[in-house]
Design a protein around this nucleic acid. Sequence first.
DNA 1: TGCGAAACTGGCCGGGTGGCCAGGACAGAC
DNA 2: GTCTGTCCTGGCCACCCGGCCAGTTTCGCA
Lengths: 123, 123
Amino acid sequence: MSEDNAPEIVLALEIDDPALADRLAILLGNIAGLRLAAPGEAATATVMARDPRIMPEDIALTQRELDVLALMAEGASNKLIARQLGISVHTVKFHVGSLLDKLDATGRTDAVAHAARRGVIEL
Amino acid sequence: MSEDNAPEIVLALEIDDPALADRLAILLGNIAGLRLAAPGEAATATVMARDPRIMPEDIALTQRELDVLALMAEGASNKLIARQLGISVHTVKFHVGSLLDKLDATGRTDAVAHAARRGVIEL
DNA sequence: TGCGAAACTGGCCGGGTGGCCAGGACAGAC
DNA sequence: GTCTGTCCTGGCCACCCGGCCAGTTTCGCA
């Protein structure tokens, strides 16, 4: 047992392609000393599709949207963002609306999560 | 088609920690349908070390709080979380309140960002 | 057996959020 | 000129969120 100071390795799958993710999950599912991370669980290592994150430069966010997004990620409210950027709350809402649209998110929390996943912002 | 519609999966290891890389190489080395990439070879997916980010033994979150947190990270509303977990909205709010407190966050967006930063959840 | 922690539920309410409508200023491309 | 896109602003409104009060049950542990 001297060897077993090594704890189980927990692998997180971060793969968009469902087919590939499935195959990997099956292949990696039954290996002693290794298991897949439960959703939301902290992992030892991550399996990612080739080309970590920065896939395309798609999403095309404007500078102002990036400003707003960054502050959103800090947990700032619309009012605070408005004050920070020197614009009105209405304008902030406008940008937030655009972000929800472009990031295909249902709310600001979802927007930040999506953006982080895609590498648009760094948490 | 005996051999498959499913081509071999090639995994690249990008892990700095030699001990961990070794263990993974051994574990992943003998799995049918999967092999490790030769140096420089194009891979299907990559295994990366999780950011050494501050790992938390600290932040003691209860199982229920983790459930709620995971759903929050998906952008779910309190109502949706309640339905998902089969509990009332009030209870969800109760757990969210605890999370904001424990994670030192000002709102749910901030809570998810903090949790992700600290490795409590995977985005 | 009592005690605390965790989980759960309710009501109430001020303020935040997001969707909708409308508009204007200003740049660059056609 | 016209047109398109970005950025900016306003009002209105239904809904959501987070914080406050209160309570119950269930569980393990001392």
